[in-house]
């Protein structure tokens, strides 16, 4: 097994193990920390596949910004394992069976696909120069629309988070 294969299996094991930790741990803070580890493992996969720009963006935006926001909210509400609401055993079992059936159905579908070999030579499609060229030529309209989306989300978050009365504790971005 070459180094690519070893790294693939190690990162996959970390990603799946930590993803299971997210849904199984009782303490919400532990769930957030497990999800950060999952995102780091997925970022490692990006690096393995020559997507260097997405690797950096994934770490900065997901692990750095989004998950810290989650962590702030969890700590702001003082959530811990004692106040964690639990579903009944039957409902949890039903959730696992539903997810497992989806897994099996899609697995049966992808089992018949033709495996495509991954070219392990280094390419520069994942570098910021190339991605920037594509983004500002082919995808310039979605890019502009996403800026409008960001603006409306910022305004929306401020409007939703604004207290109607007395002291204004604002929840913006």
């Amino acid at each position: 097994m070459d180094i690519y294969g070893i790294l693939f299996w190690v990162l996959s094991a970390i990603a799946v193990g930590c993803a299971l930790g997210v849904i199984l741990s009782r303490n919400p803070v532990n769930s957030v920390l497990f999800l950060i580890l999952t995102f780091f493992a997925i970022s490692g996969h990006y690096l393995l596949m020559n997507a260097q720009f997405l690797f950096i963006v994934n770490i900065i935006v997901y692990a750095g910004a989004i998950m810290v926001l989650f962590l702030f909210v969890v700590m702001l509400m003082n959530l811990n394992a004692d106040v964690e609401p639990q579903k009944g055993q039957l409902v949890q079992l039903a959730g696992v069976i539903a997810g497992g059936i989806l897994f099996l159905v899609v697995l049966a579908a992808i089992k018949t696909t033709q495996p495509q070999a991954i070219d392990k030579t280094t390419t520069d499609i994942g570098l910021i120069t190339n991605l920037g060229k594509v983004l500002f030529t082919k995808f310039v309209l979605p890019f502009e629309i996403s800026s409008v989306l960001f603006l409306s989300a910022m305004i929306g978050a401020v409007v939703i988070g604004k207290k109607e009365d007395t002291h204004n504790l604002q929840k913006g971005e």
Binding site: V16, A19, L20, V22, I23, K87, V91, Q92, A94, G95, V96, A98, G99, G100, L102, F103, V106
Partner: peptide, 9 residues
Amino acid sequence: SIGIMGALM
């Protein structure tokens, strides 16, 4: 699938 299971559980 793990994500789906978590959302349902």
